Computed example of a mutant assay.
Amino acid sequence: MVYLRTIKLLREEFPDTKQYPFGLPSLQKIDEIELESSVTFFVGENGSGKSTLLEAIAYQCGFHTAGGSRNNYYEVEKSESSLGDYIRLSWMPKLTNGFFLRAESFYQFASHIDDTNGYKNYGGRSLHEQSHGESFFSVFANRFSGKGIYLLDEPEAALSPMRQLAFLYVMKDLIEDGAQFLIATHSPILMGLPGTKILNFDASPLEAIRYEDTEHYQITRRFLENPHKYLTE
Score class of each variant (00 low, 15 high):
residue 215 E to Q: 10
residue 103 A to P: 01
residue 195 G to N: 08
residue 227 P to W: 07
residue 47 G to V: 07
residue 63 F to V: 08
residue 96 T to R: 15
residue 185 T to A: 01
residue 14 F to V: 04
residue 163 R to N: 12
residue 78 K to V: 13
residue 189 I to E: 09
residue 120 K to A: 14
residue 9 L to C: 06
residue 169 Y to L: 15
residue 43 V to I: 04
residue 105 S to A: 08
residue 123 G to T: 04
residue 115 D to E: 15
residue 4 L to I: 02
residue 185 T to F: 02
residue 55 E to N: 11
residue 142 N to L: 07
residue 190 L to M: 05
residue 160 S to N: 01
residue 202 D to Q: 06
residue 156 E to C: 02
residue 94 K to I: 11
residue 83 L to V: 09
residue 140 F to I: 14
residue 63 F to D: 08
residue 140 F to Y: 14
residue 213 D to M: 09
residue 3 Y to R: 02
residue 11 R to V: 14
residue 10 L to V: 04
residue 139 V to Y: 00
residue 13 E to T: 12
residue 134 E to V: 09
residue 63 F to L: 03
residue 195 G to H: 12
residue 82 S to E: 15
residue 140 F to K: 11
residue 41 F to H: 07
residue 30 I to F: 01
residue 93 P to G: 10
residue 218 Q to I: 13
residue 191 M to V: 10
residue 98 G to F: 02
residue 214 T to I: 04
residue 166 A to V: 13
residue 91 W to E: 10
residue 6 T to R: 14
residue 173 D to K: 06
residue 179 A to F: 06
residue 76 V to I: 00
residue 136 F to Y: 13
residue 185 T to K: 08
residue 90 S to D: 13
residue 69 S to K: 09
residue 106 F to E: 07
residue 75 E to H: 09
residue 207 E to D: 13
residue 134 E to F: 02
residue 177 D to F: 10
residue 64 H to G: 06
residue 220 T to L: 15
residue 183 I to S: 05
residue 162 M to G: 15
residue 148 G to E: 04
residue 107 Y to G: 14
residue 54 L to K: 08
residue 225 E to G: 10
residue 37 S to F: 11
residue 33 I to P: 04
residue 209 I to R: 02
residue 177 D to I: 12
residue 94 K to D: 12
residue 84 G to M: 06
residue 174 L to C: 07
residue 116 T to K: 00
residue 65 T to R: 05
residue 91 W to L: 12
residue 110 A to C: 05
residue 6 T to E: 14
residue 48 S to R: 06
residue 138 S to K: 05
residue 22 F to Q: 09
residue 182 L to H: 00
residue 77 E to V: 14
residue 39 V to N: 12
residue 93 P to K: 08
residue 13 E to L: 15
residue 95 L to M: 03
residue 13 E to Y: 14
residue 12 E to L: 12
residue 151 L to Y: 00
residue 225 E to R: 11
residue 80 E to G: 12
residue 152 L to T: 09
residue 151 L to D: 02
residue 130 Q to V: 12
residue 101 L to F: 15
residue 33 I to F: 02
residue 171 M to W: 10
residue 2 V to Q: 00
residue 26 S to C: 08
residue 195 G to A: 11
residue 70 R to K: 10
residue 13 E to C: 13
residue 21 P to D: 03
residue 153 D to I: 01
residue 19 Q to T: 13
residue 99 F to P: 09
residue 145 S to D: 04
residue 71 N to F: 14
residue 157 A to L: 12
residue 41 F to W: 11
residue 226 N to T: 09
residue 180 Q to C: 01
residue 33 I to N: 01
residue 57 I to A: 02
residue 58 A to S: 04
residue 52 T to S: 05
residue 76 V to A: 01
residue 181 F to I: 07
residue 38 S to E: 10
residue 66 A to K: 08
residue 208 A to I: 15
residue 157 A to K: 11
residue 228 H to D: 14
residue 201 F to H: 03
residue 100 F to M: 02
residue 42 F to M: 08
residue 9 L to K: 01
residue 44 G to L: 09
residue 48 S to K: 05
residue 27 L to D: 00
residue 47 G to Y: 00
residue 124 G to V: 10
residue 113 I to E: 08
residue 47 G to W: 01
residue 90 S to C: 14
residue 187 S to E: 03
residue 53 L to I: 06
residue 88 R to S: 11
residue 175 I to F: 00
residue 73 Y to R: 11
residue 124 G to W: 10
residue 223 F to L: 03
residue 135 S to R: 04
